[in-house]
Simulated assay, not measured.
Amino acid sequence: MNCQPQWIKRVYNWLLSNQSCLLCDLRAGTGQALCVACELELPWLGDCCQRCALPLPLPMAGLMCGHCIRQPPAFARVHAPWVYGFPIDSLIVRFKHHSKWPYGRLLAEILGQSLLDGFNSGEPRPAFLLPVPLSRKRLRERGYNQAGMLGDWLSKQLRIPCQPHWLLRTQDTAAQQGLDAKTRKRNLRHAFRLAAGVQVHGLHLALIDDVLTTGATAQSLALLLLKAGARRVDVYCLARTPKPDGLA
């Protein structure tokens, strides 16, 4: 049974026929549903940790945060265009919890363009995109996996295959929102596994998710993939929280 919604026509019809700005409702005039003025005012992620993308104050540009220095994460790099703040947080919540798929499509397109810019500047391209999986129960309740939708959109834009069934969530863990870093890690123990027959040895892979907070989910999945022989694991997401709970 495919729980993903039949969202493709609705998303693209909306994007083609409604070119007023999502934020100010004025005519966008950019080919996207976002005007130039509002795009410039989005909470763009500036100077950040080279490893986990945690926003850093000047003059720490190009450095790693204290947590990554003390305990380097299993993933090699996080790429996120924005800090998780207004209005990006509102757009992601509407996409993730209220089925407002055009918001997600727009944000994915901008994320994809920033990734293409990075590839053109010499950043390595992964072989496959792997959306962070939902449990079967949560997928039935929500009706779709927002990470899977992001992965599908990015796959077409980046021309990198997306493998939404390689990673499985085997435990219906409690929601991560509101939990501190230590509790999130305990919450995710043994929560994931690779699908039967999947071979990742020697591959550069990229996890796809909407927001990176403490990085517990990305860490758990990256460890799983590296233990299975993956060469490198990156994380591509829409936004990075400025101060993850429990991190210095």
Rank of each mutant, 00 (worst) to 15 (best):
E109I: 06
A33F: 01
A230G: 07
L188K: 03
W44K: 06
E123L: 14
T241F: 06
C68E: 07
S114F: 00
D245E: 13
S17D: 08
C65L: 07
A195V: 00
P73C: 10
D89N: 10
D117Q: 15
R94C: 04
A37I: 14
L63R: 12
K100H: 12
W153A: 04
Y236K: 10
L111C: 09
T173V: 13
G112V: 04
S121K: 15
V83D: 02
Q176W: 02
G46L: 12
L221K: 03
P161Y: 11
Q19R: 15
T241E: 13
S17K: 13
W82I: 07
G85I: 05
T170D: 02
K9H: 11
A37K: 14
R51A: 14
Q50R: 14
A206T: 15
A248I: 12
Q146A: 06
L63I: 00
Q163K: 14
V36N: 09
G148W: 03
Q32R: 13
R105D: 14
P55K: 06
L207D: 00
A218N: 10
W44N: 08
V132G: 01
F192E: 01
Q157N: 07
V36C: 09
K185N: 11
C3G: 00
S17C: 12
L224A: 04
R193V: 02
L139M: 08
S135Q: 00
W7C: 14
P102G: 01
V93E: 07
L56H: 01
L54T: 12
L107I: 03
V132N: 02
A108S: 14
E109S: 15
F95S: 00
N187A: 03
E141L: 08
L238N: 05
Q171C: 07
R77W: 02
S121P: 01
P124G: 01
D47N: 13
G178C: 04
C65A: 10
A33W: 02
V78I: 09
F128C: 06
F192H: 02
H79T: 10
S155E: 13
A74R: 07
L130Y: 06
R232K: 12
Q157E: 12
L221E: 02
L40Q: 15
G31Q: 07
L247V: 03
L205M: 07
G122H: 03
R10Y: 09
S99Y: 09
A230C: 07
V132Y: 01
N18T: 07
P131R: 09
G151S: 04
G178P: 05
L129H: 01
